[in-house]
Every structure is written in C-alpha cells, then in structure tokens.
Amino acid sequence: MRRMSLIAATGFAVAGLTLSACGSNSLSNNSPGAGSAPGASGTAAGGAVDPTLAAKVPAKLKSAGKIVVGTDPTYAPNEMLASDGKTVEGWDVTLFDAVAAKLGLKTEYVPAGFGTIILGVTGGKYDMGVSSFTINPDRKQKVNMVSYYSAGTQWVVAKGNPENVSIDNACGKSIGAQKGTVQADDLAARSKKCTDSGKPAITQVIQTGQDQVTADVASGKTVAMLADSPIGLYAVKQTGTLEPLGKIYDSAPYGYVVPKDQTAFANLLVDALKAAKADGSYEAALKKYAVEAGGIDNFAVNP
C-alpha cells in the first residue's frame, strides 16, 4: 500500500537519473512548465480502440492525441526505468497503456519525484499521475482518484532472517522504507510504540527512492524493509537473497490521479478499465509481471 502520505528493478540504484519535467496543457489552461524533454514516451497498446469511449475523450486531450503522465520510476515492477535509462516500463505502465488505447490515445511518461506528482497534476504540468498512489481521504480532497488495483504492505528480510526480525517487535533494528509512504509512517508508529514501552527505537532508514531502500536490505545496511506487496515480492524474486517476512497487511486500492475538475474524464477511465478487463488486456498486463493477485474489477472514482 505504497505512498499514503502526501508529503528498479534490483540493479537497485539508478545512477544519474534526472527527474525531468515537461508541461501539458491538454487538460489545463495553465502554461507548460519549463524543463527538459520528458524521460520517456510510448504508444498505447492493448487492444482495439473503443469508438464509443474515444468519442467521449475531452477535446484538449483528443487534440493533443496523448496523455502526459507523471510517474516515479523507482518502484519496480510497478514503475521502473528500462535498460536505456529513460524509457519508463512496468506493469502499471503496461496496464495504463492498455487503458489509454481504449481511448485512442498515446501515453507520455514523465519521470518525477513521487512527492511532486499530485502538485504537478493540480498545477497542469501533467494530465494525470500513474505511480502506485494509494487512495485515501486526504488525496480525494485534492484530486479525483480512479481505483484499478489492490496492494498491501510486505516486510522483506535476508534469506533465513539471520537477525531474527519480528514484525511485532522490531525495536532496536535498522529498517528501511521509502519517504512519503505509508510504510514510513508505519515504521515511525512502531518505533514510538517501542520507546513508549521503554525499548530501543527502530533505526528508520528512509530513502527517497525505493530502489535504494531495496539496495540497503540486500547489502545488509538494514535488516528489513517495508514496501508495497508487489514491490517487496518482486525484490525477493529478483535478488534470490531475500525473503518475505510475515503476511501482507493493510491492503488498499491504488488510484490514478486526475484533476479535481475532470470528474467526467475520471469516469471515462473507469469505463476504459472495464473495457480492458473485458478484452483481457487488464489481466495480461498484470500476468506479465506476475502481480495478478492484486487485480480488481470494482473500478470506481473516489471509492
């Protein structure tokens, strides 16, 4: 359940990644933001265009022929950079490409710091955000959120759990999480519980990117990490040196981030998700990365 606070694959660190920004006036009258060209763009794929849905696309998007999407590509396998260092890929990307295809639109993904994406959407820099955003009341006050997946928190440790980490008693341990996530909040609350009971605090190693969080536990800098379930389980699979600890908990839906004044477009995305579900492209996107366990069919705006 990534990123409830507002504030890559296991090559782990993406050296020299520039979080570039580009402007979009597709759904906004704001001027495009200054910045370098987007880090990646792609053509939507995933089944035939649905003419009925395509006819409902907002005029500005239809004129642009694309959706400009803000995303944080440090969250493998949801959003990550390909080997060329600029193309954004992952199941979240593949799935949204299938959704955009139903609307007859291309996609352009702009790498950005996670904490800047919602502001970029509300300010008109991006048409929307696709970056494993957990739906919560605070966000729904600022933007529309379209549910499309369900994820929870997964702890990960070194194989064999040599440090005997316990989820319910991690006091005195060095544990990692990504900044601005529900997992970082979870760690802080657990650490306070430790100190309130007279035990040592958890050493919270909070990193800006999830790739570094994963690198820390793989290298032994931390003895455990917390991440969204697909991210934690992907790290286990890719490294071969890590294992999940305990069960997934606190599952909640991910949501596409859409400007607050674009409710009709948000509802159109719900219909496009239903169309992708019906033709199999929804499941295909999840199965490609073995994350189909979190698939849903009750797509909705601000559930």
Rank of each mutant, 00 (worst) to 15 (best):
N30K: 15
R3N: 04
Y109E: 02
A278Y: 04
K106Q: 11
L17R: 13
G294E: 11
T153P: 02
S132M: 00
L233H: 01
N78T: 12
V88Q: 09
V258P: 05
A54H: 06
V223R: 00
L19D: 10
I248S: 05
C171L: 10
A13S: 09
D261S: 12
K287P: 12
L245E: 14
L269C: 08
N144P: 01
F114E: 00
P303Q: 10
P58K: 03
G39I: 04
G120A: 14
E243H: 06
P137D: 11
G172D: 12
K277L: 05
G294N: 07
G124K: 13
G220F: 03
S281F: 11
G172A: 10
F299A: 02
G152H: 13
S28F: 11
Q212P: 01
S197E: 15
A266R: 04
D228L: 09
G115D: 07
R3Y: 03
T222H: 10
T203F: 06
L6W: 04
K125E: 00
I67T: 03
I67Y: 07
T87N: 09
G160F: 12
K287G: 12
G180I: 00
G172Q: 11
M80F: 08
T134S: 13
K287C: 05
V146H: 05
I202W: 07
G180F: 00
T134N: 09
K260G: 05
E108V: 14
A76I: 12
A55I: 06
T116F: 08
I206M: 09
D216K: 04
G129D: 02
T107D: 04
A224E: 07
K102M: 06
S31C: 07
V68M: 08
G220R: 13
A76M: 11
K287L: 10
P77F: 02
G198E: 11
E163A: 15
A98R: 05
T43E: 08
A40C: 13
M80E: 10
L187C: 05
K237N: 15
G172W: 15
Y256A: 08
E283K: 13
A112H: 02
G104S: 08
V182A: 15
K66D: 10
N302E: 03
V99F: 03
A64Y: 02
L119G: 14
G209A: 12
P77R: 01
Q141L: 10
